[in-house]
Amino acid sequence: MVTKLIKVEAIKRILNGEICVACQASTKDNFLRQVRLLRLGSIKFFDQVPISLNESCLNHLQSYICRNCLQNLPILSHNKIWQSEKMRLQVNSLFSYQRPISNMIVQLKFYHKQYFAKLLAIFIFLLRQKFLLDNQDSIFVPIPLHQNRLKERGYNQAELIIKETAKLANLNFDNKLLLRTKITKKQTEVKGFEERQKNMSEAFVINSAYHIEHLNKFKKKQVVLFDDVLTTGSTIEAATKPLLKAGFKVKALTIAREDFI
């Protein structure tokens, strides 16, 4: 009973903005509370953010994440793009898969802490504004889960993140275009690049339930596939194949990528 009460109190403190959701440190002395918008460039995280950014997004971040975590975000530069060797595909990632970002993704993905979806969406909105603007006419499609995995988890974390991003940036969001028809092992349980590729082989198909007219309208646009983490690229490559075959142009976006990519 005591343990449950402690957990409840911790959740209340997080939701009230009293402790950092990434490291559980206090946010009461958060530096962001003490500076004006135009001075935010002094924090490492905001070096790449234009002055015209949405202040409400900053307010949301500073309520949940402490100064130390914001100063130590493992940000990747805009031009550090992963290029698939097998197909015409470039993947733009915001961060290296390191703390505190890795903590946030794990908490969202495996511990049902869905409030991380909005925080991660805000990072996309702030750090990739040019990318989002350049792809305003594209369709943002989350990597789908198999229906069995979806029932087990209750939600698709990639879908939650990019849906929140679409709301912030007024993007075209679609979670029905692509289906996952093959039950695969979790990629974290599969070792080796070739084994991961075999695991994901023919795992995705275009949703045949879509009307032909609807698909034809989509083909004039570009798809931006979205996933939380890029590891070997096997999942995104497998999801790209049916889209290319159907005539789509494809780019990809992820929150983070493993350092060895």
Rank of each mutant, 00 (worst) to 15 (best):
S84T: 00
A203I: 00
I139W: 13
Y111Q: 15
N30T: 11
V35K: 08
L5Y: 09
Q83F: 02
G247P: 06
N199A: 07
V8I: 12
E237Y: 07
E9N: 06
V141H: 04
A238H: 03
P144Q: 03
A209I: 03
N79F: 09
L89I: 00
L243E: 09
L76H: 03
N207D: 12
N79S: 15
S93C: 11
S84L: 00
A22T: 01
L38M: 04
V35N: 03
F116P: 01
K109I: 08
R196T: 07
R67E: 15
I261D: 01
E189A: 15
G247Y: 07
S96G: 03
N30G: 11
F95T: 01
C23V: 05
S102Q: 14
K130R: 10
L160E: 13
G17F: 04
E237H: 05
F31K: 06
D137P: 01
S208V: 02
I255P: 00
Q129R: 05
L32C: 09
E55W: 06
L179V: 05
L89P: 01
L94C: 13
S96F: 12
L150E: 14
N68M: 09
E189S: 15
Q62M: 09
I81S: 11
N16S: 14
N68V: 12
Q107L: 09
G154R: 08
E159M: 08
K185I: 04
N72E: 13
S138D: 13
I43N: 10
L171S: 03
E195V: 00
A169W: 00
A166C: 10
L133V: 14
N92L: 02
F116W: 11
C66L: 01
K4H: 07
L178P: 08
I14D: 10
H211P: 06
S102L: 05
L119K: 03
M1H: 08
Q24H: 10
L215M: 12
I255G: 01
K12C: 13
L73C: 06
R36K: 12
Q147F: 15
L160K: 04
S63Q: 12
K109R: 11
Q34N: 08
P100W: 06
H112C: 11
S77Y: 02
Y115L: 14
N59C: 10
K220D: 11
T3G: 04
K167Y: 12
I75E: 01
Q83G: 01
E194R: 01
V35Y: 04
M104W: 07
K217E: 13
F204I: 07
N199H: 05
R39T: 08
N103F: 08
H211G: 05
I236D: 02
L177I: 12
Y115F: 15
L244S: 06
D137K: 13
R257A: 02
L15I: 11
A169F: 00
K176C: 14
V21H: 07
Q24K: 08
N30D: 11
L160A: 05
